[in-house]
Amino acid sequence: MRSVPTAVAIFLLALPAAPAALAGEPVDSAQAVIERQIDAFLHDDATAAYSFASPTIREKFPDETSFFDMVKRGYGPVYRPGNFAFGRSKVSGGTVLQEVLITGSDGKDWTLIYQVVRQPDGSYKINGVHMQPAAPGSDI
């Protein structure tokens, strides 16, 4: 009988941590999708890269070739990043806004805001990217 109270105590101790773990899940999921899409671009895998696009993006670019060409032409730092890091994020309902700091292959720094939306099946898809040159920071 002693094992039951111990099990209950362990369960109760775990409860306060559960909401915190769930709070990070949308951001973790969005970041994973972004990383996987960038990896697909780096490997010239148009099929994989296109698989992370939301239905809204797929309406605008109905096949992986047109999508891949658009990214190559308009989002060079995403297509061929020198490196990247995640910045701030914001969750609102089923949407994650994720800041990504990217250095393009030409050495220029960019700040991107990804809009990643939760789909009816629970997955997350990239619904848009706003890209702007990064403002220079102060000298160290």
Rank of each mutant, 00 (worst) to 15 (best):
D121I: 12
A134H: 05
A7C: 12
A18H: 00
V8N: 07
D39W: 03
I140C: 05
S123K: 12
A14L: 15
V100L: 13
A17C: 08
P62K: 13
T65E: 13
A48V: 01
I34F: 00
L97M: 04
N83Y: 13
A85H: 05
A30Q: 01
A14F: 01
P136K: 14
F41T: 00
L12G: 00
K108Q: 09
V8A: 14
M1H: 10
S105K: 09
G87Y: 08
E64T: 08
D121A: 13
S3N: 13
A85R: 10
V8L: 14
S66C: 03
P81R: 08
G82Y: 07
D28F: 06
L12R: 01
R118M: 08
K72N: 07
A20P: 03
H130C: 05
W110A: 07
A134R: 15
E35Q: 14
G87A: 11
F52D: 00
Q115Y: 03
R36I: 00
A32H: 04
S123P: 05
A18L: 15
D139P: 08
R80F: 10
Y124W: 14
N127M: 02
R73C: 00
T56S: 14
E64R: 14
V78D: 02
D69N: 15
V100G: 01
Q132P: 01
I38M: 12
L101A: 06
I113M: 13
I113G: 07
E59W: 08
P62A: 14
Q132Y: 00
G137A: 13
T6L: 15
L15T: 00
S54T: 08
A14R: 00
E64Y: 07
A18W: 08
V96K: 05
D109P: 10
V33C: 04
G104L: 09
A18D: 01
A40P: 04
V4Y: 11
P26G: 01
N83W: 13
Y124S: 09
K108A: 11
P55S: 10
G24A: 05
E25C: 04
F67H: 10
G128Y: 04
Y124F: 15
F41E: 01
I140W: 11
S123C: 04
D28E: 02
G87M: 10
W110Q: 06
D106C: 07
L22T: 01
I102S: 05
I126A: 06
Y114H: 11
P81I: 05
Y114C: 04
D109K: 15
S29R: 12
S3T: 14
G122K: 12
V129Y: 06
K90T: 06
A30W: 03
Q31F: 01
I102R: 06
F67Q: 08
M70G: 00
Q31R: 15
D45T: 02
P5E: 09
L13Y: 05
A134L: 10
S123G: 11
Q115K: 14
G107Q: 09
R118K: 15
H43P: 00
W110S: 06
A135Y: 08
P55Y: 11
Q98I: 04
